[in-house]
């Protein structure tokens, strides 16, 4: 079973994403901020990260930079944000995200991207 780490400080958003992903058969873990996410990423391997931007302690950019820079994990990461501006996207890509989805993410949109990024056939 593919494992996905949701990194988000908002419990409601975590639950929303978790519901969507679990209903599609993914195994989900959660981290509340960048620091916790790094700890989890160091302990076990995930197949995908879904990362919020704005979080306490260490934000999403910081987490991704750490992930990529320290060679902790190079699996695909999707950044989720409420901002749809092009420069917000570029900032996400620079930090190391491979995809960028605008919140609230529609379930089908999320699942399509997750499936492709994880590499699962239909």
């Amino acid at each position: 079973m593919k494992r996905i780490l949701i990194v988000d400080d908002a419990a409601t958003v975590r639950m929303y994403h978790r519901n969507i992903l679990e209903s599609a058969g993914y195994s989900v873990d959660e981290a509340l901020n960048g620091i916790e996410a790094i700890e989890k990423a160091l302990q076990e391997s995930f197949d995908l990260y879904i990362v919020d931007v704005n979080m306490p302690k260490l934000d999403g950019y910081g987490f991704l930079r750490e992930l990529r820079g320290e060679n902790i994990s190079q699996v695909p990461a999707i950044m989720v944000s409420t901002e749809a501006e092009a420069n917000d996207q570029v900032a996400a890509f620079k930090a190391g995200a491979n995809g960028y989805l605008v919140k609230p993410v529609k379930p089908e949109q999320l699942l399509t991207h997750v499936r492709l990024l994880i590499g699962e056939t239909v």
Binding site: Q74, N98, G99, L116, G119, E120, T121, V122
Partner: peptide, 14 residues
Amino acid sequence: KAVAGVLLNCCKAI
């Protein structure tokens, strides 16, 4: 590496 991973996965997916 992450990009390559994405590309590989996508190709696997199709």
